[in-house]
Amino acid sequence: MKLPLLLCLSTLTLTACSFAGHMAKEGALSLTERSGREYFTLAGKLPANFKLQASAQYGVLDEEKCQVRNFGVSGTSTRTMVIQQNTALKDHPHSFSLKIPLTHHVGLCDSELYRVALYVTGHYGEESWQQDRHGGGIAVLDTRPEHAPMFDSDGSMELRGMCMWMFQVSRVYLQLSKLLHCSQPDENWSQDHDLSKRRGLGVTLGRDELAGKTVKLEIREDPQERPSHRNTWIQLPEGWKPCEPKPGGWMSCQDPPIFKTFEMNGQECTVYPNCTE
């Protein structure tokens, strides 16, 4: 009975040693982690109760130099390079400025920026679940595509985002909740009423022209709200009223509509946004 136990202990020891060795190697490599000297600046403005996450993603230049052992699984995988930055959440309109490196390095593993994922998060209440986010991004190619926007003479470029709240009765919390939808309006901050025809929040740029430049991102909160699904609320002079769905699982309102109450901030309501008529 002692031999299997010894083999088990031996296996555990080897596994622990292997894990310790792996962690020691990664710890040593982390000391060499560094960003390149060239970067561009992502700066802009956010509405009250909004924050931004910018996740810079890098592609390795030589996979052989960027292999990481998969602990617990045989083989290796290519190292993932991501630098994530977050702005603060404030109860008033505020500005931000983030430096996005164009290259990143760990040991002998070199990588280049290929995308900055943007996540705009808005809060519409004090509860932890009363928030939602919508994504966009800055794609980075080796050179700027022919029809991509150009930087101004001062080295800056404007990127606009309009974020609209879409309300619904949550099936999870059984009260009014909201979804966030962000899109890119034109230079006059106007856009198509049809959500499917709106442009996504983002732009494609060339890495060879980004060093030292500034992308100015301004996010605005659309004052107009709408239901998250068509024909689930009816708009009346006193506001939006939710209606009972059609029999058989259809989400759309019955005809004629049969209105129902909903809960909002601990109150039973008949109309949004004023709660009572």
Rank of each mutant, 00 (worst) to 15 (best):
G125S: 02
M150S: 13
E126R: 12
W129S: 04
E126Y: 06
S128I: 07
D152N: 14
Q130M: 10
A139L: 12
E126H: 12
T121R: 11
E127F: 06
A139D: 14
V120H: 01
P145F: 09
E146F: 14
A139P: 04
Q131M: 09
L141N: 13
F151N: 07
D152A: 15
I138F: 05
R144C: 12
L141Y: 15
Q131L: 11
R133I: 03
P145L: 14
G136V: 01
R144S: 13
G122C: 01
S128M: 05
A148M: 13
M150F: 06
G137Q: 05
R133C: 11
Y119G: 05
F151P: 08
P149S: 10
M150D: 09
D132P: 01
V120K: 00
P145M: 09
P149Q: 08
G137P: 04
F151W: 09
D152G: 15
F151A: 09
I138A: 03
E146W: 08
P145S: 12
M150Y: 11
P149G: 03
A148I: 12
V120C: 08
H147I: 06
T143E: 15
W129H: 06
T143I: 11
Y119V: 14
Y124A: 02
I138V: 15
V120M: 08
W129Q: 05
Y124F: 06
R133G: 15
G136Y: 03
A139C: 05
D152L: 09
V120P: 04
H147D: 13
P149K: 03
T121F: 14
G137T: 08
T143V: 12
G137I: 06
D142V: 06
M150C: 05
D142K: 11
G122Q: 00
P145R: 10
I138D: 02
H134R: 05
E146D: 12
P149M: 02
G122P: 00
Y124M: 02
E127G: 04
G137L: 03
E146S: 14
F151T: 13
W129V: 03
Q130Y: 05
G135A: 06
G135I: 01
H123F: 14
G136M: 01
G135E: 02
E126T: 10
D152T: 07
H123D: 04
P149N: 03
H147M: 10
I138W: 03
